[in-house]
Design a protein around this nucleic acid. Sequence first.
DNA 1: GGCGATTTGTACGTATGTATT
DNA 2: CAATACATACGTACAAATCGC
Lengths: 84, 84
Amino acid sequence: MLTMDRMPATPVNPRGPVLAYLQVAGDLAARITSGEFAPGDRLPAERDLAVEYGCAYDTVRRATAVLRDRGLIVTVHGRGTFVS
Amino acid sequence: MLTMDRMPATPVNPRGPVLAYLQVAGDLAARITSGEFAPGDRLPAERDLAVEYGCAYDTVRRATAVLRDRGLIVTVHGRGTFVS
DNA sequence: GGCGATTTGTACGTATGTATT
DNA sequence: CAATACATACGTACAAATCGC
């Protein structure tokens, strides 16, 4: 049976051909389009995402910047990052 | 006599009300519009700018990102940053 | 309004990778 | 191949905004 379980973040492969922040951006985008994160939902805190993905805060910031530019998410200082 | 001497970069005041990277962006913009850096000119290397301004490399990166967004400069990987 | 907890924002420092000369 | 210069990545610290109590 297909249970819509939380798909754990795929740890970043720092040696892979794809830049780390693009790996994170791609994975987050997939989790959003898959419905794991629905519109209005708040994503985990950026620093928590960094732990999940096994990467630096800076890398998550770059990733979320990409998704913000795409209009996929909205970030509010002091509150969090939300799915558009 | 007014000599068009090189105006040294104003060191960043990290305690000031203006964000450090905006201070750098503003100063660079002023040096460009004043003609110190003319179109086609290459700016000093980002790390040299960091030394000039007494700030971190990251701060210069943020500043140049602002000027790039404004179309004031163009950055080429491995070559440098040029006035548009 | 104050206080603390949470979360994003900025800043610094450093190391390594990649492109150009 | 070496030097130069931008790009990415990691780690850390502190500031600023928000919210609940």
